[in-house]
Nucleic acid binder design. Structure first.
Lengths: 356, 356
DNA sequence: ACCTCTATAGTTAACGATTTCTATGCAAGC
DNA sequence: GCTTGCATAGAAATCGTTAACTATAGAGGT
């Protein structure tokens, strides 16, 4: 007689097997479809599966056969505009490759990040994607290298998204985008419009690789045009609206001479715009403003922001794709993705009479 | 002699046991800390754990002892501003309760949603959180009820976030916010400013419970002030910027008389603002505009948007909290969260000479 | 007729932990 | 001195599935 599964318990292969008069192995084979089973048997098994509303136990499957089809995504927080897009890309590619996606947030706490990586090792995630700028400190690099090795030994893969590579002999997948190139391009654009006094708003956090790259591009563009690299850089300690707003007000109050502001991120730029508007300055007639990231906000600002487009979603997709489809024994992987300037309304030619 | 784990394999309790000269049971007990173990033994085991860099296998643990500590989060997409906040809240609460968070996106495909729920059943997720407006159709309700029962039987819990409840005898947790109340409040605010010709921009998708609620609040506010409920409603088929923009242009082109626009969402409002500005109309001097949701964008718009604040993050937290800490045998749970009007700069008193 | 091969199905042992049950040594109580 | 009881540790069963062997019929070749 068919074994009656206890109420509240979910049916197992054994229940299905009993109910359809075959062995558990056969049920497994029908479900996996990787072994010849007669049509009649298959039909009986499928019928029992439907009647019992059987679903497989993913844990047991992972334990017995192939691993967990899981990718982990560790991020500062989910609501940051660029983070969300990377996450979207990671989830998309994970799904496309038949994996599920675990997501965790660190809220910027490095200890928490370590805990989470450990947790993901327990979970046997096939890839652990870390997103967001890390610092370039020695301890950071050492710790990441150690983690990369530990994950590798567990059959997993460390993926760094928008962080600097660790070294050629470290088993990790790194996907970056061209911070320096984008900053170079958009600075050149401002210079070509006639601007000579450009403020880079976003220094002040040395070691932050994303910002460092952008600053490098900014300086390189000045050198390429035989301009002295301006040391005039407004400090925006935190990279939020408020700090962009305050830094701009301070700049104006100090009577600094400038005709354009290069905000290190679009979010900072949104604060800059508010401060300029409050000061009665028109953008771009009086002052030009550009940003970086091209988050959706950029088109909602007034005026619409000229900025550098980064395809964050593709960044996430590429990260997962490379991590899962790498050559066995491929140690270090490193990809740099391109970016491009998006010209909108917030930057214009130099005003004729230097207004300030 | 200590068993040498094969290279590439991760060490197991057995390896740790062999290496420290105790049984697997003892290792398990040291790690779990739920059974007396002598100090000396504990030290030896911990040393072996550290030396072998042992991490537990979450799958095996789930299979043997307690279930998977996992909550699933199924959402339209990750980049929607309100979705991201709900996700943040879900992840936060899940972490606070010692759970991990699986996240999947449907991109609006109901079939995909079904597949994902099935997948989550396989994963034994303790709760499955569904976010985003569903329709109120009969088939939808039936299907959800069936799913709720299936999940319940598997020991899991269906959680509906911002969707209508299914019924008192359906095992599900529902967390909504007060769409109608918020719309009532902000409409009353507009009326108190003197507005009598208010356009509700966002009809046209009957059965969408979120929008229906807001529309109901809009109409009820008119009734409460002895005003005839205006049938003048601009249709915004899709709830994005573009449709808000177009609908507003059409409205102006048709020469419709109105002094205020109630956009069904902040995103729609951002499109409305662009269209009004292009038409040379000032906000709020000529036309008042209000939105709904209070996403971060609301403070980046020009002028800053008066809108209804919804605490999406708290919504996500509440959903998880209720799902995990419910009474055993509690069938239906239903919570409605409050919202409140946030007054900023986009709505003002009725202009003296009716400009249009 | 005999042997081999293939299609089909079952047995049994992993997988890596937890969780009863047992079992021992040693202190305390009578 | 003998039972009682607690602290400590191990053996074995269990969770649900897969994979590696085994086993049995017929089909087809010689």
């Amino acid at each position: 007689m068919a074994r009656q599964p206890a109420s509240g318990d979910r049916p197992t292969v054994k229940d299905v097997a009993a109910s359809s008069g075959v062995s558990a192995t056969t049920v497994s084979r029908v479900l996996a479809g990787n072994y010849p089973v007669s049509t009649a048997t298959r039909a009986r098994v499928m019928k029992a599966v439907r009647e019992l509303d059987y679903v497989i136990n993913a844990q047991a499957r992972a334990l017995g056969g192939g691993g967990t089809k899981t990718v982990a995504f560790i991020v500062h927080d989910l609501v940051g505009p660029s983070f969300a897009y990377v996450g979207q890309g990671v989830e998309q590619q994970a799904t496309a490759e038949g994996r599920l996606c675990l997501v965790c947030t660190t809220h910027g706490d490095p200890e928490r990040e370590l805990e989470l990586i450990e947790l993901m090792r327990e979970q046997q995630a096939e890839a652990v994607v870390l997103v967001g700028g890390g610092t370039n400190s020695r301890t950071y690099l050492e710790r990441m290298t150690q983690i990369a090795r530990a994950l590798d030994k567990s059959g997993s893969r460390l993926v760094l998204c928008g962080r600097p590579p660790l070294g050629p002999d470290v088993p990790a997948t790194v996907v970056e985008y061209d911070n320096e190139g984008g900053a170079y391009a958009i600075t050149s654009y401002l210079i070509s419009l006639g601007h000579r006094d450009i403020v880079f708003m976003g220094a002040g956090e040395p070691g932050h690789t994303t910002i460092d790259g952008r600053l490098r591009g900014f300086e390189r563009a000045h050198q390429a045009h035989q301009l002295s690299a301006p040391s005039q850089q407004a400090v925006a300690i935190t990279f939020d609206r408020q700090s962009g707003y305050r830094a701009t007000r301070d700049l104006l109050a100090a009577g600094r001479k400038f005709t354009a502001i290069f905000a290190a991120t679009d979010v900072v730029a949104s604060g800059v715009l508010v401060a300029l508007r409050e000061a009665g300055l028109r953008v771009p007639e009086d002052i030009s403003v550009v940003g970086y990231d091209d988050i959706p906000l950029a088109t909602d600002l007034t005026p619409m922001l000229t900025t550098v487009h980064v395809d964050y979603e593709e960044l996430g997709r590429t990260a997962v794709r490379h991590a899962l489809n790498r050559d066995r024994h491929a140690m270090s992987q490193h990809t740099v993705m391109g970016v491009h300037v998006v010209i909108r309304d917030s930057a214009g030619p130099l005003p004729k009479p230097a207004r300030r």
